[in-house]
Design a protein around this nucleic acid. Sequence first.
DNA 1: CTCCCGGTTTGATCAGGATCAAGGAAGATC
DNA 2: GATCTTCCTTGATCCTGATCAAACCGGGAG
Lengths: 248, 248
Amino acid sequence: MGIANLAFDRKSCGSCPIRHRAVCARCNDEELAELETMKTYRSYEAGQPVAWAGDPLEFVASVVVGVATLSQTMEDGRTQMVGLLLPSDFLGRPGRDRVAFDVTAVTDLTLCCFRRKPFEEFMARTPHVSQRLLEMTLDELDAAREWMLILGRKTAREKIASMISIIARREAAMQKKAATDGFGFELPLTREAMANYLGLTLETVSRQISALRRDGVIALEGNRRVHIPSFEALLHETGDDSDGGMPA
Amino acid sequence: MGIANLAFDRKSCGSCPIRHRAVCARCNDEELAELETMKTYRSYEAGQPVAWAGDPLEFVASVVVGVATLSQTMEDGRTQMVGLLLPSDFLGRPGRDRVAFDVTAVTDLTLCCFRRKPFEEFMARTPHVSQRLLEMTLDELDAAREWMLILGRKTAREKIASMISIIARREAAMQKKAATDGFGFELPLTREAMANYLGLTLETVSRQISALRRDGVIALEGNRRVHIPSFEALLHETGDDSDGGMPA
DNA sequence: CTCCCGGTTTGATCAGGATCAAGGAAGATC
DNA sequence: GATCTTCCTTGATCCTGATCAAACCGGGAG
């Protein structure tokens, strides 16, 4: 996951290598300078927890490098992933004082953090920031609702195909190129994490990935690297068909 | 669903019988007067569509009386409900120009509508409104993510118990009383709609409701009216146990 | 009254995915 | 090089919920 791929912003917060989508998009230089004073970086190793549900919420942050997940766990250990955070995604909920879901680093992870209180004061003074945050939250809500269709109504094969196509689309966007046929990328999750994402077991995930490989819908190099010979064929397996499954 | 139960607000928008949670909570009299000029009411009969995914988004609205659903449908007819809108809930997404999901009236429904453009201009001038809307959207996002756990990891019986307990909690809040043992209320959905909500078939919904009745967890009068002898016993069936499943 | 109709219940059978179990591959560490 | 460890694959069997099918119930219309 090379950081070079992430340099899609011209206006960045000082030394922060990526633009904070939520914060900086419409900020002027003065506002950026103020944000600069509240900023700190934090790093986490793969597999480490970032925060637990119920913790006091001290920081909001933006993912700089790596992948983090939001998840819920039931008392008997069943867990369901409810969010996947890739570089440039925003983490944290201004206006709340508790963390809502468990946050875990699934790869080595770097966050660019803002202390919540000063950030909220900044927001209150800067209406376009809360408007931008509202837009982002609406995007997340759309994504969550699309995910509900996948969890509630799709077969195991369709779930896997949907996940691969969603990750491929984000990966292509991140690399600033179209998701054309022949596109290849790395799956950022273990089979177990995919299972928690899709509401399946890891055995079923493994079997369905093997099945899609056997059927020529995807090609694999090793366990993690995926190559898509035909996007159309992949989309056909998602059950959405026709369009890419984007909410209209 | 008596309208008397909804009169929980002292500050309402003129003739609108309920406060618009999103809009009015912190508005002064001048702002309320301005909102008054953009307002129209619309009514829909039970079963009628309110809007389809992809339609141009002309209005935002607040539910005054009745129940509406948000849902997605796959090409082969499988459908998944992704939102349930009860009185005082907000409908529509400022800043978007297309409807994202199918909206259907499941009971007779009255909406209090604001034309989107003037409403957005009002928002831009009134920062506390976009902040309030952000809070509400975060609430919806939490609800959607809790729902993902239900869809992805719970058994049919746990799904039914979770749904009943969620509706009971909202109903109790609406009636302004605690959800104590012995609480009774009406299910606002058909078995089929519940199935679409829970990612089940209507037969399974019916069977599991019967099973919970047989086991004394709930009591039924007719098909729709539910009576809960012991909230603790119901919560125990949800799989969440210990607490009520609220995000921390 | 009878007929119909949408919503609901219940039964019988089937199948998709879970579960239990064993083994393989690629890195780490010694 | 040998041995762990982690992640992944594959096989055999089981079980929950889907599917197919029939009948029930209450209400409205004729």
